[in-house]
C-alpha cells in the first residue's frame, strides 16, 4: 500500500534513527526507515512527502563512508539533514565539512541568528544536544545560516526558504529542549 503521507528516513547508522521515527510518529505522520544502501527504486516506491537524512558514525570524506543518493535531491520535497545528514547535504551542494573542526558532545547552547519557520519559537540560548566530530566549515552560496552553537559551530542552516534544512544538533533527542519543535512543522510541510 502506498502511503501518500510518508516521511522517509534514510539511516546512515545513527544511534537515534528510531527517535527520529518516534518524533514523526508523535505528529501522527507515517514514517519509514530505509538503510542508506537501499536502491533508488525503493526510495521512489515510497513516494515520500519529505525525507530525513539521519546522523551516522562516519566522516563524510572518509573512504567507504555512506553517500547521499542524488535522487533524493531531485524529489523536490522538504529535506532535513541531521548531523552526518547535514554534512551530506553540504557535500552535495558544494559546501565544506571539516573533520578537524570543533568537536561537541552533549550540551550546547543554540544562538539563533536568523529566523526561520522551522526554528520558530526557539528562545535565546536554548539547550541542544550535540554529538559530532565534524562540522560545516563553509556553506554553499544558496544556503543561509540560521543558528550557531555557543562554541561558534554552525548549528543550523537552510536553503529555499527552509525546504532544505540542515542541523548539526540532534533535534530528535529529548535533551534538545526546544529544537524538537521543528518536527511538527517539518512533518506537516
Amino acid at each position: 500500500m502506498l502511503h501518500k503521507q510518508t516521511v522517509l528516513i534514510i539511516d546512515y547508522g545513527s544511534q537515534y534513527t528510531q527517535l527520529i521515527a518516534r518524533r514523526i510518529r508523535e505528529q501522527n505522520v507515517y514514517s519509514e526507515i530505509l538503510p542508506h544502501s537501499a536502491p533508488s527504486e525503493e526510495i521512489l516506491q515510497r513516494n515520500p512527502k519529505a525525507v530525513v537524512l539521519s546522523g551516522g558514525p562516519d566522516s563524510v570524506y572518509a573512504e567507504g563512508a555512506p553517500v547521499l543518493d542524488p535522487l533524493v535531491m531531485e524529489l523536490g520535497v522538504p529535506i532535513l539533514g541531521i548531523c552526518y545528514g547535514f554534512g551530506l547535504l553540504m557535500t552535495h551542494d558544494g559546501g565544506v565539512v571539516m573533520s578537524n573542526g570543533q568537536r561537541e558532545y552533549g550540551f550546547a547552547e543554540l544562538a539563533v541568528e536568523n529566523g526561520s519557520r522551522l526554528l520558530n519559537g526557539i528562545t535565546e540560548k536554548s539547550q541542544v544536544w550535540m554529538s559530532h566530530g565534524d562540522a560545516v566549515d563553509m556553506l554553499p552560496e544558496n544556503w543561509s545560516v540560521l543558528a550557531r552553537s555557543g562554541n561558534g559551530v554552525l548549528a543550523a542552516a537552510e536553503r529555499d526558504g527552509g525546504v532544505v534544512l540542515g542541523t548539526q544538533f540532534h533535534p530528535e533527542v529529548v535533551h534538545t529542549v526546544e529544537g524538537r519543535e521543528l518536527f511538527p512543522t517539518f512533518s506537516l510541510m
Binding site: D11, G13, S14, Q15, Q18, P35, P57
Partner: peptide
Amino acid sequence: LYPDIIESGGVRGTADVI
C-alpha cells in the same frame, strides 16, 4: 528494548557497536 538493539549495532547492522 530499542536502545539495547541500537547500542549493540542496530537493527540493520549500520550503527557502530557501543
